[in-house]
Write a protein that binds this DNA or RNA. Structure first.
Length: 566
RNA sequence: UGCCUCGUGGUGUAAUGGUAGCACCGCAGAUUCUGAUUCUGCUUGUUGGGGUUCGAGUCCCUGCGAGGCAACCA
């Protein structure tokens, strides 16, 4: 799918019109503005695809901006990993940048400017310092149905406000003692217009600027300034910010009055915000807070646990950047809050891996088969690395008298339409020969310990000399040369479609106890050389990625239309 | 309840006043040395009621339902 085929969703039409109307000054500029307070997940990946995707579609640029205006939760570890994950997804920020790195910005690098703008607002009588406590303010702000009450400080003179604000900046006051409010409209039905806080005191070191500041701007003040001053034309965010848009526009209006809006090719660039629905996926949670809880309480092995919906987790699970992008493309962009089916994600990754992943044989639940009429020694089977891609070549696999097969490929008493191994029934051993089971021996507990049978000596390579058909083909690993490997079988993290149905405090009870099964199996010799990150299809089983030598993580199973007869 | 937003098959998404389409899921069949892939076919939909119009998923009114906002978080 190329750009021109992508959906003409409402954001795209919005930008198209602005371009046609000449509002962009010849360049569409978007931005992806994560707060470095956690790892990005598949939900952010959708935003990344939208923000970077729209810029690319219109030949513009997308800035990566770390929205680091709240020092209490942010860190460099998060910042670095966010950059790594975006790159891995296949995107590169571009544009001028606010330092050495093109396209890269920190909101915090604009703190000086924001502070100046705040002072200017004070001078113009559009902001004032307020020392109401948060509890008091609740009462003053009131409820949406009725107008609020003005703060007693609302009419302080600009001179006095300037003095107070500078004292705030200089550390004269404790956290929460004073704050700076925009002076807008205490009667507005939109709560965000009732004199919102735009600066608060935080005696906390910033991960990036150290203790340079003890006052920090609020999102509603900082974000439009960042967008406007960076020359962003189209600022896309999620639905919950819709109510903030009038405030966003208010700030941009003030910048306009101050003559601070940038001009490109003679066109004044006025940033605009639009909102789209965030991505939700059933059987998982997407909130950073809850993901953090899973990590810190040890319910998973870390942010990159392959069961996590984080980008780094999905990477370890074996998902490809292309599959994730395809998924984001296919779920589309709209304003309807919806829940996507994980089946679509799985389809996307199978779709890609089917074309690209190298085939190997692995037996995950081994039981031994002895070929009683086998001559001594071993032979070699040659199989394509990928039957869909001749250029992938072939490999040779040793085959001998004793092989492992999967326990589920044998039934002592076969049900109808069981095309695999069963006494008296012929089955093809993939690439090798036709085999007829003669019986099995059992251990003390009654479990099958060893299967016996004979091979059709005229069928080497897999086809019978007389041309008779064999319905079933199963995979195998040669006992003499097969290699032991650890395989992690992952399943969905939650058993409930909506793990939050009883509220975020109770989601843990819906965790899937079988979300991880570790098994030891045998894999064909070629897999001993697999390097971390290499992806394979284990034939008839699923797609797997090498986590470390001889350890494989299951990305997704193969589709399986075999249904056991009740 | 004040304001804002949104309702199209099971799920996601098109149709921008003119034949309700696509994809995933599901089901059935064909092919197959992976019960995979591939191919073919099928089931299922415009939130209710009024109105405007030759014609309404689309425009208007009114119900109903869902979500958001009321942090010195983003």
């Amino acid at each position: 799918m190329n750009e021109s085929d992508t959906s003409r969703h409402f954001l795209r039409q919005w930008i198209e019109k602005d371009v046609a109307d000449g509002k962009t000054g010849g360049k569409v500029v978007t931005r992806f503005p994560p707060e470095p307070n956690g790892y990005i997940h598949i939900g952010h990946a959708k935003a990344v695809c939208v923000d970077f995707g729209m810029a690319k579609l219109f030949g513009g640029e997308c800035h990566l901006r770390l929205d680091d205006t709240n020092p209490t939760k942010e860190s460099d570890e998060y910042a670095e990993n966010i950059k790594k994950d975006i790159n891995w997804l296949g995107f590169q920020w571009s544009g001028e940048g606010d330092g050495k790195e093109p396209g890269f910005y920190n909101a915090s690098n604009m703190f000086d400017k924001m502070y100046e703008i705040a002072e200017e607002l004070i001078r113009r009588g559009q902001a004032y310092c307020c020392n109401l406590t948060q509890d008091e303010w609740k009462t003053y702000r009131g409820v949406p149905e009725k107008p609020g009450t003005p703060s007693p400080s609302r009419d302080t003179t600009p001179e006095r406000n300037l003095e107070l604000f500078r004292e705030m900046r200089d550390g004269k006051y404790a956290d929460g003692e004073w704050c700076l409010r925009a002076k807008i409209d205490m009667a507005s039905p939109n709560i965000h217009f009732r004199d919102p806080v735009i600066y608060r005191i935080r005696h906390v070191a910033h991960y990036h600027l150290g203790d340079k500041w003890c006052v920090y701007p609020m999102y509603d003040f900082a974000h439009p300034i960042e967008d406007a001053l960076e020359g962003v034309t189209h600022s896309m965010c999620t639905l919950e910010f819709e109510v903030h848009r009038p405030l966003y526009d208010w700030v941009v209006d003030r910048l306009d009055e101050m003559g601070l809006l940038p001009v490109r090719n003679g066109v004044k660039i006025r940033t605009q915000q639009r909102e789209f629905a965030r991505l939700n996926i059933t059987y998982t949670v997407m909130s950073k807070r809850l993901l953090l809880q899973l990590v810190t309480e040890g319910h998973v092995d870390g942010w990159d646990d392959p069961r996590m919906p984080t980008v780094c987790g999905m990477r370890r699970r074996g998902y490809t950047p292309g599959a994730i992008r395809e998924f984001c493309e296919r779920v589309g962009v709209s304003k309807v809050e919806s829940e996507s089916d994980p089946a679509l994600l799985e389809w996307c990754v199978r779709e890609e891996l089917n074309k690209t992943a190298v085939r190997r044989m692995a037996v995950l639940d081994p039981v031994k088969v002895v070929i009683d009429n086998w001559e001594e020694g071993s032979r070699e089977v040659e199989l394509p690395n990928n039957p869909l891609d001749e250029s992938a070549g072939t490999r040779k696999i040793p085959f001998g008298r004793e092989i492992w097969i999967d326990r589920s490929d044998f039934m002592e008493v076969p049900e109808k339409k069981f095309f695999r191994m069963a006494p008296g029934q012929e089955v093809r051993l993939r690439g090798a020969c036709i085999f007829k089971c003669t019986g099995c021996v059992k251990d003390g507990s009654g479990a099958v310990a060893e299967i016996h049978g004979t091979w059709d000596v005229g069928s080497w390579g897999g086809n019978a000399a007389d041309g008779r058909k064999v319905k079933g083909t199963i995979h195998w690993v040669d006992c003499a040369t097969g290699v032991k490997a650890e395989v992690r079988l992952y399943d969905r993290l939650f058993t409930e479609k909506d793990p939050l149905k009883d509220g975020p405090a109770n989601f843990l009870k819906y965790m899937n106890p079988d979300s991880l099964k570790v098994v030891e199996g045998y894999v064909e010799p070629a897999l001993a050389a697999a390097e971390p990150g290499a992806r394979f299809q284990f034939e008839r089983t699923g797609y797997f990625v090498c986590d470390k030598p001889l350890v494989f993580n299951r990305t997704v199973t193969l589709k399986d239309s075999y249904k056991p007869a009740n």
